[in-house]
Design a protein around this nucleic acid. Structure first.
Length: 297
DNA sequence: GAACTCGGACATTCAACTGA
DNA sequence: CAGTTGAATGTCCGAGTTCT
């Protein structure tokens, strides 16, 4: 049983949510990514009746190289050095990248299975329909699929600020709706206050921007001409209330006294005592080649 | 109940292979 | 030679066990 109070387990249901977890954004089957620290309360829900047809299973994120301590303990590491776990246990000075073993070369593999379809996985039909009813092209989805999820839906309006940041589409017709590329902000989980998080990017949790396509509706929303003085032009009127809001800058949650207390618990313990309890009888001596613990060896 | 262990699912990497 | 495949290798979830 997962112990929610176990600091090792973190405060997130990382990577192995129920396949039908409705709090997770719809992701393409091409490359779904779990940013599981994304708190539900800060998500931009899909409007009623517009939930994606199925919430695909999210993908577990891994660091490229865990530190030796996390590796020994089979626990989640992060890219920062010292990693959060080592800091938490007071062994920051021992937090070093584990050494990767060189891959063998010259292993013969035998013939590959015939590909049945020409581009079976590329042409995977992805039915992403935004509320305008405009299906996003599979290629479009693929292009954005390696990027963070959009925990909100897009509406057939240019986002606020659109005109100041992106050139308006130029080849549309009156009343037509067209997909246009924009950059959307994404706030990684750890950006949301690192007081007790475990997962996330290395320190310096900056909002990232990533490419996405939104349906752009041509007039009646008139494209304002750029101002000669270079100032940003006024933004568009807000979308009707039934549309999901556009992403907003995340306002980090202040840690509650309870959060702090629970975090303190993990730190009050003598770090050395804790280290003795854990690190020195890890099973890393027995970490076998072949992933897992010897099963493929 | 908390801390720890560890089996195994899942992710990533990259050389071998394939087909244009 | 770029793109694909799939085995090797790595991470870490979470159930079970041990400890306090």
């Amino acid at each position: 049983m997962a112990d929610p109070s176990n600091p090792e387990n973190g405060d997130e249901n990382n990577g192995t949510q129920s396949p039908t977890d409705p709090t997770q954004p719809a992701m393409t089957p091409v490359h779904s990514i779990s940013y599981s620290g994304m708190p539900t309360m800060h998500m931009y829900p899909f409007p009623p009746g517009l939930m994606p047809p199925q919430a695909p299973r999210t993908k577990r994120r891994q660091v490229k190289n865990a530190c030796t301590n996390c590796q020994k303990a089979c626990k989640k590491c992060d890219d920062a050095r010292p990693c959060l776990r080592c800091v938490k246990y007071g062994i920051a000075e021992e937090c070093v990248d584990s050494q990767r073993k060189e891959r063998q070369k010259g292993i013969k593999r035998g013939p590959y299975k015939k590909r049945d379809g020409k581009s079976a996985n590329v042409d995977q039909q992805i039915d992403v329909t935004v509320q305008s009813g405009i299906p996003i092209q599979p290629a479009t989805v693929a292009a954005t699929s390696a990027t963070p999820p959009m925990p909100y839906s897009v509406a057939p309006y240019p986002p606020p600020g659109y005109f100041g940041q992106y050139p308006p589409p130029t080849n549309g017709k009156m009343g037509e709706t067209q997909l246009v590329p924009i950059m959307l902000p994404y706030y990684p989980p750890m950006y949301q206050g690192a007081h007790n998080g475990q997962e996330g990017e290395a320190n310096g949790y900056q909002p990232a921007f990533y490419p996405a396509y939104v349906p752009y509706q041509y007039p009646p929303y008139v494209v304002p001409a750029p101002r000669p003085d270079g100032q940003q032009v006024p933004t568009m009127p807000p979308p009707p209330p039934h549309y999901a809001p556009y992403p907003q800058p995340y306002v980090p949650k202040q840690p509650t006294s309870r959060d702090i207390a629970s975090d303190m618990n993990g730190q009050m313990m003598d770090p050395n005592a804790r280290r003795d309890m854990r690190m020195d009888n890890g099973r890393m001596g027995d970490v076998m080649p072949g992933g897992g613990h010897g099963k493929n060896a």
